[in-house]
Amino acid sequence: MSTNFETVHDLPESCQQAVYDLILAVADSKHLLGLRYGEWLGAPVLESSIAASAMAQDEFGHSRLFYSLVDDFVQAGLPQRQEVPSEYRNIEVLDQPFESWTDFVAANALVDAALLVQLEAFRNSSLMPLRRFVPKLIQEEVFHLQHAQGWMSLMTNTSEQSRSALQQAIRKIWDPILCWLGKPQSDSEKALLGAGIQDIDSDGLRTRWMEQVGPLVEQGHLDLPVSNDTITGEWILGSSLNWDGWDESFRRASKTGPDAETFAQIECFSTHSYPVGT
């Protein structure tokens, strides 16, 4: 039975950095995902423009909660992140706007699923403030995946063109998202598990992710490296992940961060002179 921590101050020093890194990676990813979703006033149907805006707000709302934990870490003495693109730790595929609605659908399914399984792994977290807000976030995510599923099934059932475009869009972001769930046996994974911050290791997260995404891939007859073991029913990853250059603390391989136009939107939070608080 591991100890629970009422505040981030109570965390043992040995795991503080690893927890901070993960919280910041989730906060930044949700922030950036919100910006990306919010760009889609021009979805192919108005209902989805509305949905995209609603999902953007959910992501911002979630990031607001994660950033409040980040602030607690800074108060506990961890260094404040510098406001430069290269210090941002969002999932790499969110650095630039989605080029097409197909890219939106792919990210809606894959990125949201990754963030969801990470949230699920916090359900029994020893970090109490995190554990308290996580169920509400998970509740809100349900709609995101339904939205993605609706579009995926439309695209895989309507024409060969749309099916293969979707397949291509998913392939493009497949690896970075799977890596984002964490490097097996890394020091930070050990720290997170040891302190009971999350209750499942990175390979376990990937299995849960495949349980979300796998059925969609199978139903849509998409050619992607994931398969269902006919005997055990388990989802198995069909290719090994490329960890070259991977920085586990940033959960990224490249440190470029969001593109200039995106960063300009983020920077507004720190460069303005209005009396707005946070």
Binding site: H31, G38, Q57, G61, A264, Q265, C268, F269, Y274, V276
Partner: peptide, 11 residues
């Protein structure tokens, strides 16, 4: 909205 000065105002 792209130049909103905080998360709350952007929301």
């Amino acid at each position: 909205a792209r130049s909103a000065p905080s998360m709350n105002t952007r929301l």
